[in-house]
Design a protein around this nucleic acid. Structure first.
Lengths: 229, 229
DNA sequence: ACAAAAGTGTTTTACATACACCCATGG
DNA sequence: CCATGGGTGTATGTAAAACACTTTTGT
């Protein structure tokens, strides 16, 4: 008299990268089945003996060859008809990678994985457009109160990189002086040497994010927070 | 050559209620099986043809007879060993109910459901303690930037009710004048008549939350936000 | 009259906002 | 010497924080 539950558990990941003032998402093209050739978020079924986090990491590696710098659970999508073939509940994650991951080395299984600028994402399978939307919203609000943006930059960077990153993420201009003042006031950046990137122009200081220091401050009740969006 | 996935999908709910300056959680006592007599969050397996939200609502009704005023997905717990019997991924929700739901009418299936003051919660089955912790944290931060606290009060209330609610939730004293000024400045409360609750003391104005007005303001880019925690 | 809770305004302080010029380098 | 991007300080406005007395009722 007991109806057996018949639901599959999957994970999907929205992986963001940033390059040259553009935000990118990682998509894969499906090879088989009903949704062949459609683009979709990387993801797949969770193994019975594998935690959700591990499943995401594994799927990302298998499907795209990418190892992420930051990973966070986003939301669980469980509408009955979200996958027309069978009932699938998907735990969605979002992830950030730094620019060193940007070129997808085709050696793995990455032939069908590609970075898409966020404004040029094609039609997506299932409810993945919705997942992507939610992930972007989360990213936009989260960078305002957690210093996760650094995961989208190289380990060392110049102030204008950080500034442009925030402008790109938030899709707004920000005041250079105020932004710098604010970030520096947190005292979570560390200086290094100098640099002369572009031919002309005054060389810029190179910084890196001092994560241990941030963690320490955080424990003492300090809050990272950027008001001007 | 394909290993079939063997994972069950469940939902669990952390239902909060508020009464007389105390925050309560709804727990059930398990009747059968290995965890008999242990207290746990209400919840259960999702049906194959039922969305996650519907599953929570159904389980709450079946197990406790309670209908919630506010429901929001919290987090999905998917560690391999969180249920020692078999692999279960649980989508946790948190919910708010107003005081009219506080007395659990035994007529339904509610004999084994009980409200516990949050500081007096007994040992809980599985990882439910962790779920509860996360839910409480979420509630504490969310009341600061969304007017969900009203779901814990009667439809009409007095200003000191709201003030005490926030003090209870945030576990801090708040300045009465500043709090009032702030809340009133949002212009989302509506007046009504008067009241003489306790024998002595000046009667207080009765307010109600003007939800449509809040929704309208929200659409125009207004943000509810309480700074002084 | 007094006890109890409701109601109210001002001053101080901190931080967000707005804004424009000089500096160091490459060509 | 000019073009390019990097670096910097100050004044104004707004909102948070701190703080105590008066009002209205019941007993």
């Amino acid at each position: 008299m007991k109806e057996e539950q018949n639901i599959k558990v999957a994970v999907d990941a929205v992986v963001f990268a940033y390059k040259e003032e553009r935000l990118y998402v990682l998509l894969i093209q499906r090879k088989y089945g009903q949704f062949k050739n459609e683009w979709a978020l990387p993801g797949g079924f969770v193994k019975t003996n594998e935690s959700l986090d591990k499943a995401v990491v594994r799927e990302l590696k298998e499907e795209t060859g990418v190892k992420v710098n930051y990973l966070e659970q986003l939301f669980t999508f469980g509408e009955v008809k979200r996958d027309p073939r069978q009932r699938v509940v998907s735990i969605a994650y979002y992830a950030l990678v730094n620019p060193s991951k940007f070129k997808l080395n085709a050696q793995t299984d990455a032939k069908d994985a590609q970075w898409f600028p966020i404004e040029e994402v094609p039609k997506l399978a299932f409810d993945h457009k919705l997942i992507l939307k939610k992930a972007k919203e989360r990213l936009q609000t989260k960078v305002l109160y957690q210093p996760i943006g650094f995961n989208l930059l190289k380990p060392t960077f110049v102030f204008s990189d950080l500034e442009k990153l925030y402008q790109t993420l938030l899709e707004e201009k920000i005041d250079r002086r105020n932004f710098r003042k604010k970030i520096l006031s947190f005292d979570i950046l560390e200086e290094t040497g100098q640099q002369k990137k572009i031919g002309s122009g005054r060389p810029a200081m190179i910084y890196k994010f001092n994560k241990p220091k941030y963690r320490a401050l955080e424990k003492r009740g300090f809050y990272f927070e950027i008001k001007y969006a």
